[in-house]
Amino acid sequence: MFSPITEQLRYLLKKADDFQSYLLYSRDRVQKEQLAKAMPTFLQMCEPYFLYLEAAARSIPPIYGALQELVRKGLLEISQQLTLRLEQLVLMYASFGFVNLEETDPLSISCFFCGRFSISPSHEVSIFRYCAPAAYTASRFPRYLYKKMRWNLETIPGPSGRGQDSHVEYFFCCSAITSHSRGGTPEGLSVPAPAPPPRILCPQPPGDYQQLLTIGFEEPSHILATDLLVQILTGQAGPARPPSTAGPAAWAAQGS
Results as ranks from 00 to 15, higher is better:
H180Y: 14
L9S: 02
M149T: 05
G158F: 03
F2H: 02
L67D: 08
E219T: 08
P159H: 11
M1Q: 11
I156D: 00
C174H: 09
P203D: 04
S122I: 10
A237F: 01
G65Q: 06
G115P: 04
F172L: 14
L86Q: 03
P197D: 14
S79E: 01
E187M: 15
D165I: 05
Q8H: 12
S118D: 07
H180F: 13
E169Q: 14
L228F: 09
K32A: 04
R129H: 10
P186Q: 07
S122C: 03
E102F: 11
W151S: 02
V230D: 00
E7M: 11
K147E: 08
P243I: 00
A240W: 02
D227W: 02
L189A: 11
R116F: 02
M92L: 15
R10Y: 07
L89S: 06
N100M: 06
E47W: 07
R199P: 01
P62D: 04
F171V: 04
E7A: 15
F172Y: 13
A176V: 10
T104K: 13
P159F: 07
I119E: 00
E218Y: 07
S79A: 15
E154L: 06
I63A: 15
E124T: 15
K14C: 04
P239I: 08
F171Q: 05
P194H: 11
L89Y: 06
A138P: 02
L224T: 13
H123I: 14
F113T: 05
V99D: 03
K37G: 09
Y144P: 01
W151K: 04
L91M: 11
C173W: 05
R10F: 04
P203G: 05
Q210S: 15
R29Y: 03
L76R: 14
I63E: 13
Y130H: 15
A237N: 10
L67Y: 05
R182N: 01
R150T: 11
G216S: 06
Y25I: 07
Q20D: 09
P186L: 02
G184H: 04
A237G: 02
I109Q: 13
M1D: 12
T104F: 08
P133V: 11
Y93V: 06
R143P: 01
F19Q: 08
A94F: 05
P159G: 11
P206M: 06
S110N: 11
I63Y: 01
L13N: 06
I223A: 00
A94V: 03
E169M: 10
L201G: 05
Y170L: 12
G161S: 08
Q31G: 14
F50W: 06
K147Q: 12
P61Y: 01
L76H: 04
G188D: 03
L107D: 13
L75F: 06
I119N: 00
Q44S: 10
E154P: 00
K15L: 13
A249V: 14
F2Q: 01
A57K: 09
L35R: 14
K37T: 13
S256K: 13
A56K: 02
F217I: 13
C131I: 08
Y11L: 12
L53T: 08
Y22G: 10
S118C: 08
V230P: 00
Q254I: 08
T245M: 12
Q31C: 05
R129G: 02
N100C: 15
Y144H: 14
P62V: 10
I5Y: 00
L43R: 00
W151I: 00
E169T: 13
R129E: 07
E77I: 06
S179K: 12
